[in-house]
Design a protein around this nucleic acid. Structure first.
Length: 656
RNA sequence: GCUGGCGUAGCUCAGUCCGGUAGAGCAGCUGAUUUGUAAUCAGCCGGUCGGGGGUUCGAAUCCCUCCGCCAGCUCCA
């Protein structure tokens, strides 16, 4: 019999009989590895352990330590769930069941929606099947036979999938889980060798889905679950989900008095006093950053005649998301974006090449008529404002301007202590303009990213039809990613609006527009910050920075003096002079996540001091009022994250 | 928008299955207490049971409809 040579990652090699399954490689190395192996990577392809080795190959065995293991396990768990569902719900049809970022799902056509008790029963059945350690057998079925089998089994969706995915193939890949009734699913795999490898899983929720995500297609019931390689990882994940729930900005925002909603204005927040302070702090921060960077803040109309939207193309492509207004027989629309207003502003006077780049920044409200079902807290709203700007540049200025923008993004996220990453999206299949211009633009973006020292990934063909773009993802304190900043080149709108500047050659030229935002929208960014900080904002952002807590009524007068001094220094402070015990006032201030509590009683009133308590560190002892003010102002100015003790702040200030 | 769930006092929730005129805690108000680092005690106020319509002698409860909120609506065998 002929032999094949497999090369292992450590460079060593083994000889096996040709056609041996990959699992033999593991067995040849150690029984322990044979037991631990879940799959293998053969010449860079992830395959089952049952895959025969036909020729010499590089082989790496996948165990629960390998990066591929999690997705593999989740996909196999989805199959296990499908096996359980078909066993418990005769007649259930299976759709697709992929592994996803947080776990897996599987869609079914069933006679009634699943209820929570169903999930318990399905999960119990899954445990039973896992305990039985049933093999996942990969089988190659003649295509016609597979089609006939699924048709006979009442799985028209699988038939459709086979028809669509395997046109021209003679055989198709299926997986069988052998139980009393064998569950066979059409799937490329690969899978774990047997259900006994699936130990840590949990079904989480049900929801509606449609076949292929098309609302006009067959309605299905989706079950979401998650799976991990160990019980410990699963528990950690579930705990993280709990943590995310506790940080939910909708809950924290209400509890700390930032904003509220009313059914009469769905998708539009009411910013309460504290929320408005936070909003304004961010808006002014952005102004402080942008003014020295050469931006001009403008305010353009909120309502425009339909003619503008016809010119910009929104009327054709975006009308269903626009709020329309009738006036004297004219159709107007609330603006969903600032760009057209900025184009008109640019065109309102003659521009010289010497004036470019011209940068318009605007924070006025935008309205987008989002479908009611997608509204959600502050993250998906109908009314919001962006830290929006459009940079009008000469083609030769693109690289430098983009580099400045990347540095601006780095600076801003740095001030919030938010880690982030960049994605470059390149020319899509459907695009406007010529290839040479696109290639040039993409090169400029790459160079700018490199000059700014910004690592990035490339999303091929994911650019907008009018130009390439760079998107930035922010990672919050519990590891979730939020897409916020964007930098988009636009060659198209300057054409639509016939924008021009006079060049050094005294002829008209077309500028390029760069659309850009760093926060994205204030609403969404505030949601991010609330969840990132769990409502405990760093001092510079905290709507209420200091609460003064008198022990007894007789200390209220001194309290007013202290608050006045804090306010005069520019700190946001208030007095809690209710007739409550100090423990009660502290508890409330803690729950409101106020950074500093200044307790004052007889001792403090006599000495002109305050007993400083921090939200995070508890009682810090007494300090002179002026010392506290100096330290707190320094903390605000340096925009320090967290809430270190004032003592530490002073020590740091002195050591400089 | 579509599917499912939910909507009872400012908040969190019980009562809905099985129709008989709404209840708790917190918050608020009043009073007492004058308090030293995460909840002092007592009393009181507070609800068109999301809106509208219907069934019924009688509806928070059953039916219809509208509104809002929550989750989901390809991350593609």
């Amino acid at each position: 019999m002929s032999q094949v040579t497999v090369t292992l990652p450590d460079g060593s090699s083994r000889q096996l009989a040709a056609g041996s399954p990959v699992r033999e490689v593991a067995a040849a190395i150690s029984p322990r590895l044979a037991e631990a192996a879940l799959a293998a990577v053969v010449d860079d392809r992830l395959v089952d352990l049952s895959t025969p080795l036909a020729a010499d190959a590089r082989v790496r065995l996948v165990t629960d330590k390998s990066p591929e293991a999690l997705g593999l396990t989740r996909h196999s768990t989805a199959h296990l769930m499908a096996a359980a569902v078909t066993a418990l719900f005769p007649g259930a049809q299976c759709g697709i069941g992929p592994a996803i970022d947080e776990g897996f799902f599987y869609d079914f056509v069933v006679s009634r929606p699943f209820v929570p008790e169903d999930l318990e029963a399905i999960e119990a059945k899954m445990r039973e099947l896992a305990t039985a350690d049933l093999p996942y057998q990969r089988q190659s079925w003649p295509r016609e036979e597979a089609l006939a089998y699924f048709a006979q089994r009442g799985e028209p969706l699988k038939v459709q999938l086979i028809q669509e995915k395997t046109a021209g193939q003679s055989h198709v890949s299926c997986y069988a889980i052998k139980d009393r009734d064998t569950f066979v699913d059409f799937c490329v795999g690969p899978h774990v060798p047997s259900s006994g490898k699936l130990k840590a899983f949990k079904l989480l929720s049900t929801s509606n889905a449609y076949w292929k995500g098309d609302a006009s297609s067959t309605p299905m019931q989706r079950i979401y679950g998650t799976a991990f390689l160990s019980e410990k990882d699963l528990k950690a994940h579930l705990k993280q989900v709990e943590e995310a729930k506790a940080r939910d900005h909708r809950r924290v925002g209400r509890e700390t008095g930032l904003f509220t909603f009313h059914p009469w204005a769905p998708g539009a927040a009411f910013w309460l006093g504290k929320g408005t302070t936070l909003y304004n702090t961010l808006a002014n921060y952005m102004r402080e950053v942008l003014f020295p960077a050469g931006y001009v803040e403008v305010k353009t109309p909120l309502i425009f005649n339909k003619a503008l939207w016809e010119r910009s193309g929104h009327w054709k492509h975006y009308r269903q998301n626009m709020f329309l207004v009738e006036s004297e027989g004219e159709t107007m629309s609330l603006k969903p974006m600032n760009c057209p207003g900025h184009f008109l502003t640019f065109a309102s006077e003659m521009r010289s090449y010497r004036d470019l780049p011209i940068r318009f920044h605007e924070q006025t409200p935008l309205h987008r008529n989002e479908a009611s079902g997608v509204l959600s807290g502050l993250t998906r709203v109908r009314q919001f404002s962006q830290d929006d700007a459009h940079c009008f540049v000469r083609p030769d200025q693109i690289g430098e301007e983009v580099e400045r923008l990347i540095r601006l993004v780095q600076r801003v996220y740095g001030d919030f202590g938010l880690p982030f990453s960049a994605k470059l999206s390149t020319r899509p299949d459907e695009f406007l303009g010529d290839v040479a211009t696109w290639d040039h633009a993409e090169t400029e973006l790459k160079t700018a990213l490199e000059h700014a020292g910004m690592a990035y990934t490339v999303n091929e063909k994911d650019g907008a039809f009018y130009g390439p773009k760079i998107d930035f993802d922010v990672t919050d304190a519990i590891g979730r990613k939020w897409q916020c900043a964007t930098i988009q080149l636009d060659y198209q709108q300057p054409e639509n609006f016939d924008l021009k500047y006079i060049g050094a050659d005294n002829t008209e030229h077309r500028p390029v527009v760069i659309h850009r935002a760093i926060f994205g929208s204030f609403e969404r960014f505030i949601a991010l910050l609330i969840e990132h900080y769990a409502g405990a904002f760093p001092l510079w952002l905290a709507p209420l920075q200091v609460r003064v807590l008198p022990i007894a009524d007789r200390h209220a007068g001194y309290g007013r003096t202290v608050v006045a001094r804090l306010a005069a220094a520019g700190l946001r402070a208030e007095l809690d002079e209710r007739q409550e015990k100090i423990g009660y006032k502290i508890r409330e201030a803690q729950l409101q996540k106020i950074p500093y509590m200044l307790v004052i009683g007889d001792r403090e009133a006599d000495d002109g001091t305050v007993a400083v308590r921090t939200r995070a560190g508890g009682d810090q002892g007494a300090q002179a009022v002026d010392a506290f003010v100096v330290a707190a102002l320094e903390e605000v100015q340096t925009r320090r994250a967290g809430s270190p003790t004032v003592g530490a702040t002073l020590a740091a200030a002195q050591s400089r």
